[in-house]
Design a protein around this nucleic acid. Structure first.
Length: 565
RNA sequence: UGGGGUGUAGCCAAGUGGUAAGGCACCAGGUUCUGGCCCUGGCAUCCUGGGUUCAAAUCCUAGCACCCCAGCCA
């Protein structure tokens, strides 16, 4: 095992500091072994990605190992579908756990035997109190709890009762096994926490083998211990469970991992709780777990995010203990950063306006050469058909051009990227509606390729497609799912659902894209020049492509225009 | 008014007694066959008050604010 390289580009953090120190003192014999322990009761989201990148990343960095373990202790909420999705998502993010895929349910028998060990040591007892009574006995934040009348049963009686619980002799909720710790502890987790509850429910992996299931608090620490985890990294809310985990480990006399807590990720303009995400899906507010507006890994993936961008983001936001909400624009920045380098550029007109080049030969078609990515020459060039009738973006023409507008306007000259310079000579409108239906322009034959060396300055460069060659496609534009940076910020009587952005999805049915896209595979990404990054949605059919806008390009013209109003 | 945490710019975050990194956002400029990318510059009385010290974001002390905990959820 080695120390993290000093020249690592990743910012340092308190967890690395702890690991460095443990390595120095040889606390775990030089080992670094982490784990990512999701409960299979929902889909993974970007917050989990932070944890995944942290756990797997640290292991990689220190030459250690990271396990994938499902915390599947509650059969009522957990499903195989979630397990499959989680496995796929973690893989997609780029991590590998080799043969170390584990389940807390693998340890049910061991946990049961340990429970018996605690009973025999007089450290656990069967309680007949109801859930309500247990709550009443727990006391409050400021008042100590009361001991259960069943707290001092004999070891023999506890053993007998616990075995019969396991044997299925008692109905759900009738009894629990509790740790005997301290009902007066200021830490509520230490007030005789429940270890086992009776649940006559089939488990997705163990079937009907068990009708008693361990609580998370009883299972988690021991699972880490069994796997010889060195650094059990988890979120802040488990900080005051740590004394309990340590108590169990100490009573059992088994290997002790070290728990380290960090602040979970929050992002502006979205929600991150599994419950709320589930609600969005179940109520049909989105189209599913992989809706491109969802902060789920599946959603981000369908939206066109790359694993590289997500990993970069996870690394750059850092890890600390202060509650934090990261600006979504930072995620988008990391995305653009990655896509800028790898996405081929392509021409797509979202809202087409017909342009006729009046001095261009009727049936002529030229092949113009276009670079695929100015950031990466190795991506080569392609041919673009150019002809007399083209489409340009409606927004690239103004009859009354505002100040600083350097796109097309009557009498103005602009460059068609990789094409020619053109000048608008006429505007054709619909007689009844007055809507502009077509532009007549002249082109300058001496500017082929979009360049002239006579010193002429053309400020505007437009994208375009040849009408006869373009492919109609559907494009889906996405905006934040919520209208407020903090969706939880609501008036009396309202919920986060009232903050859903009604315009988070805009579908444009008749866009025109260049013909080179004809064979684009679902999932493939590109940049629509001057618009943003897009990817092919799986909804695409052979005859009709569907594109998702992954993220727009930065648009400083939009800013200027807005500020001048 | 119990216990556990956290307070460094609009946001994230380094800093571990020697005079406030970096990134996002924002603003200003340059460059440009994408109003993208890129480049340059701007942007902090370190929660507050006392104290220790030649020197404090860092140490001491008294406060204040915010987050988490009273599931047979994880």
């Amino acid at each position: 095992m080695k120390k993290a390289p000093a020249n690592s580009s990743a910012p340092t953090n308190f967890i690395r500091a702890i690991i460095d120190k443990d390595l120095e003192t040889n606390k775990y014999g030089g080992r670094v072994h982490t784990r990512f322990p999701p409960e299979p009761n929902g889909y993974l989201h970007i917050g989990h990605a932070k944890s995944i990148c942290l756990n797997f990343g640290l292991a990689q960095e220190y030459g250690g190992l990271c396990n994938l373990r499902f915390d599947d202790t509650n059969p009522i909420k957990e499903e195989q579908e979630y397990i499959d999705a989680i496995i796929e998502n973690v893989r997609w993010l780029g991590f590998d756990w080799q043969d170390r895929l584990y389940y807390a349910s693998d340890y049910f028998q061991q946990l049961y035997e340990w429970a018996i060990q605690l009973i025999e040591a007089g450290k656990a007892y069967v309680d007949d109190l109801s859930a309500d009574e247990i709550r009443e006995h727990r006391g409050t934040l400021t008042r100590p709890g009361k001991e259960s009348p069943y707290r001092n049963r004999s070891v023999e009686e506890n053993l007998d009762l616990f075995r019969r619980m396991k044997a299925g002799e008692f109905p759900d909720g009738s009894r629990v096994l509790r740790a005997k710790i301290d009902m007066a502890s200021p830490n509520l987790n230490m007030r005789d926490p429940v270890m086992y509850r009776i649940l006559h429910a089939a488990h997705h992996r163990t079937g009907d083998d068990w009708c008693i299931y361990p609580m998370y608090d009883w299972a988690h620490g021991q699972s880490d211990s069994i796997e010889k985890i060195t650094h059990s990294i988890c979120t802040l809310e488990f900080e005051d469970h740590r004394p309990l985990y340590n108590w169990f480990i100490e009573q059992l006399g088994v290997y002790a991992p070290q728990q380290i807590e960090f602040a979970r990720l929050n992002l502006t303009y979205t929600v991150m709780s599994k419950r709320k995400l589930l609600q969005l899906v179940q109520e049909g507010r989105v189209r599913g777990w992989d809706d491109p507006r969802m902060p789920t890994i599946a959603g981000l993936r369908r939206r066109g995010y790359t694993p590289e961008a997500i990993r970069d983001f996870a690394e750059r936001i850092g890890v600390a203990k202060a509650d934090s909400t990261v600006d979504i624009s930072f995620l988008e920045h990391c995305l653009r950063d990655d896509l800028n380098k790898r996405a081929p550029r392509v021409m797509a007109v979202l809202r087409p306006l017909k342009v006729v080049l009046v001095n261009y030969p009727e049936n002529q078609v030229e092949e113009m050469e276009a670079v695929n990515n100015p950031e990466d020459e190795s991506m080569g060039t392609r041919k673009l058909p150019f002809s007399r009738v083209l489409y340009i973006e409606r927004d690239d023409f103004r009859e009354d051009a505002p100040k600083k507008y350097h796109r097309l306007a009557p009498g103005k000259e602009v460059r068609l990227k990789h094409g020619y310079y053109i000048t608008c000579v006429d505007v054709v409108k619909d007689k009844d509606s007055g809507e502009i239906v077509e532009l007549h322009c002249t082109y300058d034959p001496k500017t082929r390729g979009g360049w002239s060396d006579d010193g002429r300055i053309v400020k505007g460069t437009l994208h375009w497609v040849s009408a006869a060659h373009a492919m109609p496609t559907e494009v889906r534009l996405y905006d934040h799912l919520f209208t407020k940076p903090d969706p939880e910020e609501v008036e009396e009587g309202k919920t986060f659902l009232d903050n859903i952005n009604p315009n988070s999805l805009e579908i444009i049915a008749d866009c025109m894209v260049e013909p080179s896209l004809a064979d684009a595979a679902p999932g493939s990404r590109c940049q629509f020049l001057r618009h943003g990054y897009f990817c092919v949605d799986p909804d695409s059919t052979r005859g009709k492509l569907v594109f998702n806008r992954t993220v727009s390009l930065k648009d400083s013209w939009a800013k200027i225009e807005k500020s001048e109003q």
